[in-house]
Design a protein around this nucleic acid. Structure first.
Lengths: 293, 293
DNA sequence: ACCTGAACACCGTTCAAGT
DNA sequence: ACCTGAACACCGTTCAAGT
């Protein structure tokens, strides 16, 4: 069902960020106090509080005290708005070697120029500087392990704070300015880990796709518990109970109990922390093993 | 907005699989040829061909040649149906040490009993059997590295063949019988890799959350290209072009080009294959490094 | 036991019109 | 330049009714 209008636009513009012309000229003299930043911020707020499923243009308009269709002056489509919201929260990440990164508002500004040299100016051949390798104490010179952990933790916490992010990352391209900046810094950090060149993109995938997966289930689980009015531990019990009824899985279930005991941690939250830490250690050990391979 | 009916049900049943009573008694004498398996199969077919966004109960009913509401006799809610579809495609995975696993139909059958000893009966202490370690040539005794690769490849291909799966995994609990079986086998394989007990759940997370993340973006990218009527390579060009216009990312962009050159591979598909393989090697190297830690 | 039809309270988006 | 209102073609789900 492709309309004539669709066809005129070409192959249905891949992303807000690939539209050309930037999203819309920001005017300074507005009658009603409504602009793209405010709309994006309200979108994030609504998505956080109500979830992706309940979010609608009409709900958003109501929140903004405006008619449903006003938003469409600033944004072509609901999907575009979601892409803007996605990149806005990617901006919450504080990136090493960058000053900005805390403001939620996105918009047309693409923060060109200032602070663009992404730090990590280690010597090209990356001579080892020891386990904590702070090498003079500057943020920029920190060991790649530390930086990688920081990036991973930051990305994870974005996914957990905003559970609606992960389905959007799955659906959109995630190539807004903040996401690209994040990718750029990650690339730089991975470079200083001295994997063979041909393995660097794979290494990046290993680490950040892991974090994405982990943060996705974590974020959604928290969200789901909150909405069901249970604690995470109650919910965990509930799901475990249902599982243990399957007689074919009895042996597996008992083993799983053993593993949980061995891992330790009294709460779901603690257990997850240990898994995340161990997994990241494992990934870093893997990177170390593949250096010069 | 919680209705009285909602409250009566308790905390809004967490999953189809936790309903108690199983989904619905299957009768053999049906007037119209409509049962849960057929409905689930049709759902999978529609999701594959039209995508998650376009899938609707009304569309499905039309496909089944039936009125919109008929489906509601078999299923409580659209979400329940999606959970059934999710577990149905998890059943496409061929698991080592298992004969079944190819049929798409799900239903009330939980395949108890038969073939439940999930193979991998290695000696408790897992004495090394060499790099390919087939130890007698039985499927069950294959080296954990091979088994892990197989599981990862299988999960990845489910995610790629059915791009609607990954948002559902993010949203639902994914604790249907097939998913649990998959988890059980994965646990068993990881056990034979001899990570310290406390690290086994973390190790599982590292591997399978990576695969989830990787398969998610891969699957959606393919889907998106297909729907836009472009090849993956064309689309890749397109996105890269948009990115390279950002002057603040010029340096990063050039580096990325270098990395791509070093990785090699002429098509997007080839490049992805190399990344996946390298990342999996890296994870396996990480597991090896953490053994006895 | 199984299926229908009408109805309710929603959607995203278009389009013509207002200021 | 910005915002509105009515309308179109959809949703998921409830409920009373048919066979």
């Amino acid at each position: 069902m492709v309309t004539a209008a669709d066809r005129a636009k070409g192959p249905a513009r891949a992303s807000v960020w690939l539209g050309g012309k930037a999203t819309r000229t920001r005017r300074t003299d507005q009658p009603a106090g409504l602009d793209l930043d405010k709309i994006t911020a309200a979108t994030v707020r609504l998505l956080d509080s109500e979830g992706l499923a309940k979010f609608s243009m009409r709900r958003l308009a109501a929140e903004l005290g405006v008619t449903a269709m006003s938003v469409y002056w600033y944004v072509d489509t609901k999907d575009d708005l979601l892409e803007l919201a996605l990149d806005a929260v990617m901006g919450e990440l504080v990136l090493p070697g960058t000053v900005d990164g805390a403001e939620t508002g996105t918009g047309t500004e693409t923060e060109t120029g200032t602070g663009t040299e992404t730090g990590t100016e280690t010597e090209p051949d990356g001579t080892e500087t020891g386990p904590d390798g702070t090498e003079g104490g500057t943020e920029a010179g920190a060991d790649w392990r530390i930086q990688l952990r920081r990036l991973a933790a930051g990305y994870r916490s974005v996914l957990v704070r905003h559970p609606w992010v992960s389905p959007l990352v799955g659906v959109f391209l995630n190539i807004g300015p903040h996401a690209l900046k994040f990718a750029a810094v990650s690339q730089e950090v991975m470079r200083s880990a001295d994997l063979p060149l041909r393995g660097q993109t794979g290494g990046l995938a290993a680490v950040f796709q892991f974090v994405y997966g982990f943060g996705t289930v974590e974020g959604h689980f928290r969200d789901r518990c909150a909405r069901a009015g249970m604690t995470q531990d109650e919910y965990h019990q509930h799901a475990m109970g249902g599982m243990s009824e399957q007689p074919s899985l009895r042996r597996t279930f008992e083993q799983a109990q053993d593993l949980m005991a061995a891992r330790g941690g009294d709460t779901v939250e603690e257990m997850r922390e240990r898994d995340f830490d161990f997994a990241l250690d494992l990934l870093i050990a893997g990177i170390e093993a593949k250096r010069g391979a």
